[in-house]
Simulated scan of single mutants.
Amino acid sequence: MYAYAYVHENYVLLDAGSALGFGVGPLLICKNQSFLETELKNDLRIGIPGKYTTANFLLGIAYPHLTDKQEMVFSEIESALQQERIDLGLIIHENRFTYADKGLHKIVDLGNYWENLTGCAIPLGGIVINRSLDAETQHKVNRVLKKSVEFAFQNPKSGLDFIKQHAQEMSEQVMYKHIDLYVNEYSVNLGIEGRRAIAVLFNMAQEKGLVPTLKKNIFLD
């Protein structure tokens, strides 16, 4: 979601298909348990899943002094920690279900940090559509996406084969935990609370100078 600020002049957020929620945020983890008991120093090496991710935005809000960041494919962060190529790892997606089994430890849940700070769900991702398309087309795509998510809720195993082809973690149990956590009522329709959460995120990012000023309405009219 964080990256959207940089392309918002050309794209508008749809109400369907987003990933928001409570208890779904990124985790900051480590291998060395001493980091659980001491203040995190600014020379620590941190593996992040991308500069323009909501995860990195939250890390910057919670720990602005941690700046030695290395961008990695999200699924490689755990192994980088195990091999001690980094000191801390910022994990997302299904890795929140697997890190403990690999001998790694949670320092902080940045989703909980955000929820305590704002009282809002955490916006992780969304689907956008080009502003150059006419309003009828934009709303039609939004309706189709909404129906697709509703169908998936009613038929939870309908996409299992497709998901298995693309999942980083092949355990069916982990895949369903991942889906249950990130696909929810906000995926069907952002609604007032979902839009509010996104607005709070971008307002905070603008106030701290972390993203460009948003010059256009970001939501579907």
Rank of each mutant, 00 (worst) to 15 (best):
M1H: 02
Y2A: 04
A3N: 11
Y4N: 06
E9D: 15
Y11Q: 05
Y11D: 04
F22V: 07
F22T: 04
G25F: 00
P26A: 08
L27Q: 10
L28G: 04
K31Q: 02
F35M: 09
L36I: 05
E37V: 08
E37Q: 12
K41Q: 13
L44C: 04
R45Q: 10
G50K: 09
Y52I: 07
T54C: 06
T54E: 05
A62E: 10
P64N: 08
H65A: 14
T67S: 13
Q70A: 11
V73M: 08
F74A: 06
S75P: 00
I77G: 00
Q83T: 09
D87F: 00
L88S: 00
E94M: 08
E94C: 06
R96T: 01
T98Q: 14
Y99N: 04
Y99Q: 00
Y99G: 01
K102N: 14
K102E: 02
L104I: 07
K106L: 13
N112D: 15
N116Y: 11
N116I: 13
P123F: 03
L124T: 00
G125V: 07
G126F: 02
I127Y: 02
I127V: 15
I127T: 07
I129C: 11
I129W: 04
N130P: 08
N130C: 10
R131T: 11
S132L: 13
L133A: 09
T137Y: 12
K140P: 02
K140D: 12
V141C: 05
V141S: 03
R143H: 13
V144K: 15
L145V: 04
V149G: 02
Q154K: 15
K157V: 10
F162E: 10
I163H: 12
K164I: 09
E169Q: 12
Q173T: 15
Q173K: 15
Q173Y: 14
M175N: 09
Y176P: 00
Y176R: 12
Y176A: 03
H178Y: 14
I179T: 07
D180A: 13
V188H: 02
V188S: 08
E193I: 05
R195L: 08
R196Y: 13
L201F: 05
N203V: 05
N203E: 15
Q206N: 04
K208G: 04
G209Q: 03
L210G: 03
L210R: 01
L210D: 01
V211A: 00
K216G: 05
K216Q: 15
K216L: 12
I218E: 00
D221S: 14
D221F: 07
